[in-house]
Simulated scan of single mutants.
Amino acid sequence: MRCCAHILNLIVKDGLKEIDDSITRIRNAVKYVKSSPMRCESFKACIERESINYKGLVSLDVETRWNSTYLMLEAALKLRAAFDLLELQDDKHINEMSKSYGVPTDDDWTYAESILPFLKIFYDATLRISGSLYVTSNKYMKEVFSIGRKIKLHCENTDLSIRLMASKMQKKYDKYWGTPNVINMLLLIAIVLDPCHKLDFVNWILDETFGVEKGGELKSKLFTCLNSLYNHYQGKEDESQSNQDAMINEEDEDDILNIYLQSTGRDSDAKSELDRYLKEDCEPRNKSAELDILGWWKENST
């Protein structure tokens, strides 16, 4: 199973190729002001003259990690006026930038501003699934399906640059997550075991994402895997033989009440713990504090 954050990185990098020159010019401008203490001080003076309230400083991205590119663009956009002023005041800045791609243009800043909300979707998702102090397996496929839906919506965006970017992302997304046969069942089962979601939610997602036909096949596969996994942990194979031996040795095997309960399906053991769990109401969602899933299962372990 591939790392979710790594695939997100590949998807976004493919999309960013559409405005690669614009990002390169902004990156070079950031690199210039961070290349020496003197240039940094000069840039800080520009920030003060423009009365920019943003207290942070620009950070240079790591080109192989797109989320650092997002942070670089976010900070640079807030300090755009300072970059414009530096361009007017510092001749060295113009000369040095001209050796490569030149200074950032108005179009570059406009592109960066238009794609930032779209990139934030991926940035936030990366943070959520990269946590190490809480359970993330139940988040994996929720994030995957949510991102797929948002990419699809942005493929119809009126802004051409965003539309082209989303189309490239869609191709990469489909490669890893766009076909039902590559979905890992355990990641869907992890959502079922989230007491805030359970099976109905997953079934709805599968229909929404893959359509009724393919979604139906996945739902059937999921239910079979879920029951198979439950039976495996219950040791049903061994249990069936021991039950037969016990029935033979029981003195009250002809008890008419036991025969009635078993034949009508009203035996107290007829419904498995899995069935009861799935039929219970979901736990209410609390937006201010996320449910501690491990704590919930520990509390309900009996």
Rank of each mutant, 00 (worst) to 15 (best):
T136Y: 12
K175C: 07
D174H: 06
N157W: 09
W177C: 00
N181I: 10
K168T: 02
S137H: 08
D159R: 14
F145H: 04
N157K: 08
S137E: 14
P180E: 05
W177F: 15
P180Q: 11
M141C: 08
M141P: 03
K150S: 13
I147H: 01
Y173S: 00
V144R: 00
N181H: 12
L153D: 14
L188P: 01
K152A: 05
V135L: 15
S146N: 09
N184W: 07
S146L: 06
N157Q: 07
E156N: 14
Y140Q: 02
D159F: 12
M185K: 08
S161R: 12
Y173T: 01
Q170G: 04
C155P: 02
N184Y: 10
Y176L: 02
T136E: 10
N184K: 07
T179M: 10
I151D: 00
K152D: 05
K171E: 14
K150N: 14
Y176R: 02
N138A: 06
L160D: 13
L186G: 06
F145V: 04
S161W: 10
R163P: 02
M169R: 03
K175L: 13
L187S: 15
D174P: 02
M165P: 01
N138H: 15
D174G: 01
M185I: 11
C155R: 09
R149I: 07
S146Q: 06
P180K: 09
L186H: 08
Y176N: 02
R149E: 15
I162Q: 02
Q170T: 06
N181Q: 13
K139Y: 11
E156P: 04
K152Q: 11
K139Q: 11
N184S: 09
M141R: 04
K152V: 05
L188A: 04
E156V: 09
Y140S: 01
N138C: 07
L188S: 03
L188W: 05
K152C: 05
L153E: 15
V144Q: 00
I183M: 12
P180V: 11
I162H: 03
T158W: 06
L164K: 13
R149S: 13
S167Q: 11
A166D: 02
L153P: 02
